[in-house]
Design a binder for these strands. Sequence first.
DNA 1: AACCGCCAGCTTGGCAACAAGATAGATTTA
DNA 2: TAAATCTATCTTGTTGCCAAGCTGGCGGTT
Lengths: 233, 233
Amino acid sequence: MSEKMKLVDELISDIKEGKYKPNEKLPSENELADQYRIPRMVVRKAYEQLQELGFIFSKQGRGSYVQNRKKQIPLILTGDISFSEKMKELEYDFRSENICCEKIPYESDVYHALKVLPSDEVYNISRLRIVDGCPIALHTSYVAKSVFKQINRDGPGITSIFQYYKTHGYKEFTSGQSQLSVVFPNEPERKILKCSSLIPLLLLESLCMDKETGTVLEYSKIKYRSDCFTYLI
Amino acid sequence: MSEKMKLVDELISDIKEGKYKPNEKLPSENELADQYRIPRMVVRKAYEQLQELGFIFSKQGRGSYVQNRKKQIPLILTGDISFSEKMKELEYDFRSENICCEKIPYESDVYHALKVLPSDEVYNISRLRIVDGCPIALHTSYVAKSVFKQINRDGPGITSIFQYYKTHGYKEFTSGQSQLSVVFPNEPERKILKCSSLIPLLLLESLCMDKETGTVLEYSKIKYRSDCFTYLI
DNA sequence: AACCGCCAGCTTGGCAACAAGATAGATTTA
DNA sequence: TAAATCTATCTTGTTGCCAAGCTGGCGGTT
């Protein structure tokens, strides 16, 4: 196993150093196996892992090629300005897509974070953030019906949720302490974010409250593709 | 490939839900293969990935077992109090180990961040952070000899670098904007942090400056094991 | 009864042979 | 000549078999 990892390490640094350029063909599995005097299976496993890490792609009968990596977008992680505003400031070709609005079954963490009763209804409003045509973040907001009475009807049309809050008379927002962790995408997330299975996602969990009244407006989870951003805090 | 990922997803959620408890034996590769009507190789690959992700461990001739996961330590990511202080506040069994102090070859990023000339000497001082006996973070400070004349002699003894700065007359510190990203450990890092290859590390890069004079005291990279922390910002 | 050694049957680990897909060049055909 | 087809050879993908390691039970010996 260690043999494979050495190879993975080496190939990654080769790619990062530009020894192999994007879309360039890598040595065939057999070539590399002969060169390093290791079984082809080891090279094969290394290549498979590099695929899952998003560094290369392989085609049966053709070979393995360097995947061109996404550019890193600097992103400010403090939560009190909206995602769209952040992106517009940075002048990226940015758009948002509403991909889901549905009532969720009872979940104690979410209900507790929102400070609502189990009898309340909570809606999941998910938007996909797309920069230069690439989906780069999945933003899920949990909103209680007791706070926004018509959320079930309005939900599907929302792309900027801060706009929505403003039209409901909330002017200034504050987010409590946010929580950061690293997760891997599950099957639907991989599909939506168009990423391979070993791309770590940076998960930011936070609340959004009305500054004046302290009402909890939403509990949100944002999953950022870690290969697309560097985060500034 | 998708077949394997489905299985990985499912097994991970089974483990997280507690369907398989820590140190419990998982079904053998053949059992699972028969059960799901898939080739053993697929199960095998899934198990291999789960090993690298730190969820299970396998022993030849015995079977595969659930690894007991580390507990998540909440950690405040703002940089102006020292790591040791943070840990002591949280009352963890914490210690630091100085593992490296050596002059680094010229590297433009580091020298530029420190605002020193190429002719200057820069030292790498690395400490391993250990909580409850588990190494959980690798803290590397880059320090210029022009700022701390005796760093080459003092370096190996440093465990709390803030203490060191204070004894040199610096009282208050400020860190500029910090940069956050996600990386995977390379071979020596895996060894030092005792983690498997697919444990993402949260990399925090920042400067430490003297508040009074603005002198750049250090440029530091901290690599946190993402399976040991949740970060608060 | 207690101990030791052997063996059958399970486990994971590794590998070599084969399958399938792509391509380029030679060969055939219109 | 130009187009179509075949073929040798390269690529990655898959499979099935055997090796290596462990365990528990059986049987013989002390």
